[in-house]
Every structure is written in C-alpha cells, then in structure tokens.
Amino acid sequence: MESLHPLKYISQTFEMPLAQVATELGVKRQTVNEWVGKRRRTIPDKHVSKLASIFNLDEKWFRMQNLEASEKLELQRIHVDRNATFIEYEDVFVDEEGIAHDVTSYYSPEQELSNHLYHLQNAQKVIEEVTRIIGIETDAHESYNQDIFRKVMSVINSNNHKKVRMLRDMLDYLAYRDHEFGFMTFEDDNLKTKYDDLINYYEKK
C-alpha cells in the first residue's frame, strides 16, 4: 500500500484541501497532483519556501518524499497544539511559609491528547531506529545487534527489578559517560569506580 505524499498528509492533517493549496501557491491543481501523485515530482524550491510559510512548518517537510510513522505523529501533535483551547480557572497556591494565594491558572483540554501523541511519537522513533539497525544485518551470520536487543528484551521481560535496574544503570553509564552534555549521579561511589574499571578493561582490549 502506497503511503501518502508528505504534502498530501499535511494538507489533510492541517485541514487545507489541495485545491486551496494550489490557489495559495498560484499554480494549477494538476501541478500539485503531480507532486503528490504516483510520479511524485520534486517540489521546486520557490514553492517549498511558500508552502513552509502557508503551513508555518519547516521547509524539510516539503522536501520529503515519504513520512515515517513518528513524523506523522509529530505533525498531528503540532496541529493539536496549534488549535488548543485554554480554559481559565481560579486556583490556590500555598507558598513556603504556608500562606495561601489565589492565582489564575489555565487548562487545555487538548493537552492530554498532545502528551499522548508525544509519547507515541517517541516510542515509534525507538521502533524505527531498532528496525533500521537490525535491518542492516541482512546476512544470516550477521545477527550481532539482534542478539543484543534480544538479550535486553529478555532482561526487561524477566520482571526481575534488580536486573532491570542494573541494566538501566549500566546503559545510562555507557550513554552519558562521554556525552558532552551528559551526566549521571551515583548513590554509591564504589559503583561508579567499578563501572570505570570495567570500561577501562574493554578500552585496553
């Protein structure tokens, strides 16, 4: 099943018919059809910048030929956030001295949906990245990454909280140890020393 062209998906998500898009661009509807149809002709730069202005989106969206599922969720979330409504209500704030203050707060009914889309988007990104990494291993003898993911899932599915915590701490250490902006705090300094010794062992091999 052929996926929707990004422009067509955006027009549907942001509720602007392609006929209106053509009018806004000053081109024929047939021209737009050639961009989003089976031929998928590249959208000229002069129209890319105008489309970005019309939809108030980054130009990257209109240079794509296909959308990942996570990207579709991101576009949905952008649309929800833009059309969010806010309800004003009176609330009470208690300061550090225990004194209550009347404050005006705001609530958006769409916030829950936006948060849901955000978590779905992040989960889908993980799925896409894992699929990409595993997909590289096309040879039957090349299953190194598959084996790693399989073992990680085995630990998680074991429901052994101590093992899961150990796995998480080790992964955090490996992910943030050399990261420019990364940091990790240890409740036990001896644990960090053991991790450092372990990483030094593998770096010398």
Rank of each mutant, 00 (worst) to 15 (best):
E74P: 05
F93I: 02
V155I: 15
F55V: 10
D58Q: 13
T104K: 14
I78Y: 02
I156M: 11
S158H: 05
M153Y: 11
F149W: 08
Q111K: 12
S49V: 12
S105N: 08
F93M: 05
G135P: 07
T85M: 11
H79K: 14
L57Q: 07
E137D: 12
D102M: 06
N160G: 05
K162L: 06
T104P: 04
F93D: 06
A52N: 01
Q146S: 03
F149V: 14
E129V: 11
F62P: 06
L117S: 07
P44Q: 01
K162A: 07
K50H: 07
M153I: 12
A100R: 14
E68Q: 13
S158K: 01
F93C: 01
L73M: 09
H161V: 07
Q121N: 10
F93R: 03
D147S: 11
S154A: 15
R77G: 14
D81W: 00
H47Q: 08
N159Q: 12
R63T: 07
K60H: 09
N157Q: 14
V152K: 00
L67R: 03
S105D: 02
K125Y: 03
L51N: 05
A84F: 07
R132T: 10
I136M: 10
E129R: 13
P109L: 08
T42V: 14
Q65I: 01
H119E: 15
D45R: 13
S105V: 01
N122G: 00
M64T: 13
I127M: 09
T131N: 15
M153F: 15
F149E: 06
S49C: 00
Y118W: 04
I133W: 02
N145L: 05
T131K: 14
V48S: 07
Y144F: 14
L75T: 04
H101D: 01
V94I: 15
L117N: 06
H119T: 07
M153W: 11
H116P: 03
I43F: 02
L51Y: 08
W61T: 02
T131Y: 10
R77V: 04
D95Y: 04
D95W: 03
N66V: 02
S70G: 09
I87A: 06
T85L: 08
R63I: 01
D45Y: 13
H47S: 10
I127D: 06
M153R: 13
Q121K: 15
V48H: 12
L113A: 11
F86C: 06
E68M: 12
L113K: 14
M153S: 14
S49G: 08
S108L: 06
V155H: 05
E90I: 11
N83F: 09
D58Y: 09
D81H: 04
M153Q: 10
Y118I: 01
N115I: 14
E110I: 13
